[in-house]
Computed example of a mutant assay.
Amino acid sequence: MRLLYGAAVIAFLVDQVSKYIVIHMMELWRIRAVDVFPPFVNFRYGENRGINFGLFDGGSDAARWALIGVALAICTFVYIWSRKSQLAGWAAAAAGLLIGGALANVLDRLIYGYVLDFLNMSCCGIDNPFVFNLADVFIFMGAIGLVFLAPDPKADANKGG
């Protein structure tokens, strides 16, 4: 479980520190855009009141609290399932990335009322209008990691009989 805790803390801190540096210290909130390595990596200021890519962006306070509740419920489920499944190694780290990233976005919603986003990536003549943050990357990496690395419960059931 130390890997889960460690990955969660690292994901949480990396996300929050990156947001502080880019949005507050570099004043992205004010200048709105910085071309870092165009068109591949750019900083674009974003306030996400919905879920990924701004889906379900109702902007209401009830929606904000519902999204916080859903994120906390998912974190709780993944944590309990990880302990019950006795995840180890990369699977435990994947669970930690998912939990840490989700909690970082929850903190944003509690502080700002929305999730701060700043990363924009485009390529090959396609102008991507969406922005995201490192917590989103950690959540995605953790979910994909769990899909491929978590133990198969059917394999455990077949061992007994």
Rank of each mutant, 00 (worst) to 15 (best):
R30V: 04
A155K: 09
G59N: 11
I111D: 01
T76F: 15
Y79K: 00
G142C: 06
V22H: 10
N48E: 05
V106F: 03
L4W: 04
A8L: 05
A11R: 00
L97E: 07
S85M: 13
V17P: 11
A62D: 08
L67W: 01
R109M: 04
K154N: 00
N120M: 06
I80H: 13
N105T: 09
L3V: 04
Y79F: 14
E27P: 01
D108M: 10
V41P: 08
C123M: 12
A7L: 09
T76H: 06
G46A: 11
A7T: 08
G58F: 13
L134Q: 01
G58C: 00
V137H: 03
L110G: 06
I21H: 11
I126D: 09
N158L: 15
K154A: 07
V115L: 08
A157Q: 11
S82G: 14
A63K: 02
F12K: 06
G113A: 12
G54C: 10
A135L: 03
F132C: 01
L119S: 01
D152P: 00
G59C: 11
W90T: 09
Y45D: 08
L98T: 01
D15P: 04
V147R: 06
I31Q: 13
A93Y: 12
R30P: 00
P151S: 10
M141G: 03
A93Q: 07
L67C: 02
V137T: 09
N52H: 11
A92W: 08
D35K: 15
Y114I: 12
M121I: 14
A93N: 08
D35N: 14
S82H: 06
A73K: 09
D156S: 14
N42I: 00
L107N: 00
F43M: 11
A62C: 08
G145I: 02
V14L: 15
K159Y: 01
L119H: 04
K159L: 03
N133I: 02
N158E: 15
A157P: 00
Y114L: 13
F138M: 05
V70K: 04
A104Q: 04
L98D: 01
L103S: 10
I10F: 15
F132E: 00
K84N: 00
L28E: 05
D152K: 03
A71W: 05
N52I: 13
L4Q: 06
R44A: 08
F12H: 02
L67F: 10
L107H: 01
L55Q: 04
A135W: 00
A73R: 09
A8N: 01
I51T: 14
L116P: 13
L146P: 01
C123Y: 12
A63D: 02
L119M: 07
V106P: 05
A66E: 12
A88L: 12
V115I: 12
G113L: 13
L55A: 11
A135D: 03
E27C: 13
D108Q: 07
A7Y: 08
V78F: 12
G113I: 07
N158R: 14
Q86R: 11
G145R: 00
G50D: 09
C124W: 12
A95T: 06
I99H: 06
L55F: 06
N133L: 03
L28F: 10
A93D: 06
Y114H: 14
G125H: 01
R64F: 11
G54I: 09
V137M: 13
A33K: 15
C75I: 09
L87E: 02
M121N: 07
D156C: 02
A11S: 11
V34S: 12
L149Q: 00
A11D: 03
